Computed example of a mutant assay.
Amino acid sequence: MLRIALCDDETSARDALRFQLEKILLDGNEEIVYEFNSGKRAVSWLAKHPGEIDLLFLDVEMDEMNGMEAATDIRKFNQDLMIVFVTGYTDYVFDGYKVGALDYIIKPAGAGRVRELMERARSMTADVNDTFFTFQNADGTFKVSCRDILYCYSEKRLVHLVTAQKEYQFYDKLDHVEEALGDGFVRIHQRYLVNSLAVAHVSASSVTLAGTELPISRALRQQASEKLARAMLGGDF
């Protein structure tokens, strides 16, 4: 799914771009999920919601914080977000490559140009060899790369998802999370589910990953140990 955001301090400009996009979005697979009216608000929100947006159309000429400044700040915490600059001038075009911009659109956005950019974004998304886990909590919807997940554990109805950078919490059953994450993750305990590629050491009673030791239950010891051994000896994710 391609999740899109627009950032422009002019309502009419956002409306015009949204109109062009809505004509070509693929139903059920692409949607405009957020709109920002300032670069500062976009940066602040994106920093708190990693992975929730795939493609950002970012106006260059904005007051307080312009689009180039916003993109520079975004790249400090997110290298993967596809950024398309929207500008009324060609002067900024080459500056966009300094922040890894996908491309640019000259205002007003023409239908052909928008379609061309969306095709590029779709192609890049399809080429990424990664899978993601999506979940919701009180702070919004999050999309986390499965490779970044170290382990998950449950406390009653609450699931904790742990990465090297952050720990997330959301309501679900660990059984459902295990099914969604797939074979790369191994259940070692009723309460614990680990990323097999993140495990550094396996003993008779525990596994160690990222400096954390987690227990293996007796009931799951043999099955879990076999799966983890295969993964540590070179099994695929």
Rank of each mutant, 00 (worst) to 15 (best):
residue 21 L to T: 05
residue 166 K to V: 04
residue 80 D to L: 14
residue 148 D to Y: 01
residue 198 A to S: 15
residue 186 V to H: 12
residue 24 I to M: 13
residue 192 Y to G: 10
residue 221 R to T: 02
residue 75 R to Y: 11
residue 116 E to A: 01
residue 156 K to W: 06
residue 44 S to Y: 11
residue 204 A to K: 15
residue 87 T to M: 11
residue 178 E to W: 07
residue 206 S to W: 05
residue 199 V to M: 11
residue 231 A to K: 06
residue 235 G to Y: 05
residue 187 R to H: 10
residue 166 K to A: 05
residue 158 L to T: 12
residue 213 E to W: 02
residue 188 I to G: 04
residue 119 E to V: 00
residue 30 E to P: 08
residue 79 Q to R: 15
residue 122 R to D: 04
residue 171 Y to G: 09
residue 217 S to W: 12
residue 52 E to N: 10
residue 230 R to V: 02
residue 183 D to V: 13
residue 65 M to W: 09
residue 17 L to D: 03
residue 130 D to E: 14
residue 132 F to I: 00
residue 11 T to R: 13
residue 51 G to A: 02
residue 37 N to M: 12
residue 101 A to Y: 08
residue 203 S to P: 07
residue 89 Y to V: 05
residue 44 S to H: 14
residue 36 F to W: 08
residue 14 R to L: 14
residue 31 E to G: 05
residue 78 N to A: 14
residue 88 G to C: 13
residue 202 V to Y: 07
residue 33 V to R: 12
residue 166 K to M: 04
residue 197 L to V: 05
residue 136 Q to W: 00
residue 213 E to D: 08
residue 45 W to D: 12
residue 194 V to L: 09
residue 15 D to P: 00
residue 31 E to P: 01
residue 73 D to N: 15
residue 113 R to C: 01
residue 113 R to W: 01
residue 156 K to F: 06
residue 3 R to V: 09
residue 207 V to L: 12
residue 122 R to C: 06
residue 123 S to G: 12
residue 214 L to A: 04
residue 43 V to D: 01
residue 161 L to W: 06
residue 173 K to S: 15
residue 118 M to R: 00
residue 49 H to Q: 04
residue 49 H to M: 07
residue 172 D to I: 06
residue 8 D to R: 08
residue 174 L to C: 13
residue 57 F to V: 03
residue 201 H to G: 00
residue 70 A to N: 08
residue 207 V to S: 14
residue 223 Q to W: 01
residue 147 R to A: 05
residue 4 I to Y: 14
residue 28 G to D: 14
residue 27 D to I: 09
residue 116 E to R: 02
residue 120 R to S: 03
residue 44 S to R: 13
residue 90 T to M: 13
residue 121 A to N: 03
residue 190 Q to P: 02
residue 27 D to A: 15
residue 190 Q to R: 15
residue 155 E to L: 08
residue 5 A to N: 04
residue 206 S to V: 02
residue 26 L to A: 11
residue 189 H to S: 14
